[in-house]
Nucleic acid binder design. Structure first.
Lengths: 218, 218
DNA sequence: GCCCAACCTATACTTCGGTATAGGTCTGCA
DNA sequence: TGCAGACCTATACCGAAGTATAGGTTGGGC
């Protein structure tokens, strides 16, 4: 249901239909899951090891990862942490026959969408995929907004960024001028240029835009 | 009942020292955990069933719940959902000898801080309690800010709330006046009164205050 | 040397937001 | 009946913000 009940048209606003990325060393499992996903119109690609995922270029479209835990080489949990380190936030659904509670809790704490055990009911699996894809669509939408804001921020001169900082913290032009040791009219100039570059129609609009930016980029 | 250890100054900023609320039908487990917590200076209180927790008045101070899953009557997971329904957001650590992966995943999805299995290492348990208490301190601090903002909001007249809505959405006085079908000077009056009642020194300050309010109260 | 971008300043003007003062109507309630 | 609170309006004024125009100084690159 939801994001999964249509093959292509329903995703027109999210730049591409969703894809499930299956990682399992068991060929039969992969084939079986691919078939299940295909039957409900979800595209999928398969890898037989975590290393292949790291070597591959992840597609720029809504996606989710389906990871086995126990695999030759790096485990699914290892991959989860590696991806986090690399800033890749594609939602992950674990699916394993050799799990325990500690593993599942660790995975969930690290942000996994679900942790399923084999054998899994078809509907349970599809529901998890559906939730993961929905999360990725929302995450990608937010990331797009954030990226656009950062691109605008990059066009600001150092002085304009300084003024922006004062403005969003609520300072008046007079106070900004005093703190920077320049005249108020100059602050107005920087402020005006900054507002134009940031495409902000009002202070309120500037603030909402500003908050979509990751704090460590400011 | 746990030993009352009130002097601990480390929690001075959070309105009360933390308390762990243990719910387990096994007396030995409860006594053992209470002793462990006491040894590191954390107060605790015990219940032998979920119903007792629901009947009791939860203390107004930083706390965390430690729940067994399998108990006579309502299970720990049932209690978790009941508390969520009642809007009680005290962090929960599960501790059980009869868990499985599905249970742990369900608990984590519902917001549990951790899901531990018996027998548990002392340090593992204490780390979980520490994380849960820290989460509750942060949650309570945010709730306090939110409550104060809502109290201020309650003092606004209907018209002032309307104007507030326009102001935070970035409208100019002229636009607000047009939309409400009143004169601009009247908008200024409502706006001025609203800013005073909300203790907002500037538009920026008003917006940050505003965002601490739950959206369903606006 | 020239250009350009970033930075700074100034005058003059407009618009916007906010305050003070002084009124008015309407509704509900003691 | 009178009072209080919410709501509305007006005049006049102030300060903050924004725009337009017209300059100036630096520092780096061709």
């Amino acid at each position: 249901m939801g994001v999964l009940d249509s093959a292509s048209g329903a995703y027109s606003g999210s730049l591409g239909s969703p894809i499930a990325i299956l990682v399992d060393d068991d060929t039969e499992v992969r084939d079986s899951l691919e078939e299940l996903l295909t039957s409900v119109g979800i595209e999928s690609i398969s890898f037989s090891s975590t290393q292949e995922v790291l070597d591959a270029e992840l597609p720029d479209r809504p996606a989710c990862l389906v990871l086995d835990v126990r695999m030759p080489g790096l485990s699914g949990l290892d991959l989860q942490h590696l991806l986090l380190t690399k800033g890749i936030q594609t939602p992950i659904v674990f699916l394993t026959g050799h799990g325990d509670i500690a593993m599942s809790v660790q995975a969930m704490k690290a942000g996994a969408v679900d942790f399923l055990t084999k054998p899994v009911r078809d509907q349970t699996f599809l529901d998890a995929i559906s939730a993961a894809v929905a999360a990725d669509i929302a995450r990608r939408a937010a990331a797009t907004v954030s990226r656009k804001t950062m691109a605008l921020y990059q066009t600001l001169t150092p002085r304009e960024r300084e003024v922006l900082g004062f403005v969003v913290s609520g300072a008046m032009n007079k106070q900004i001028a005093f703190d920077l040791g320049i005249s108020e009219i100059t602050v107005k100039l920087h402020r005006s240029n900054m507002m134009k570059k940031m495409n902000a129609r009002s202070l309120t609009h500037l603030l909402s835009t500003w908050q979509s930016m990751p704090a460590d980029m400011r």
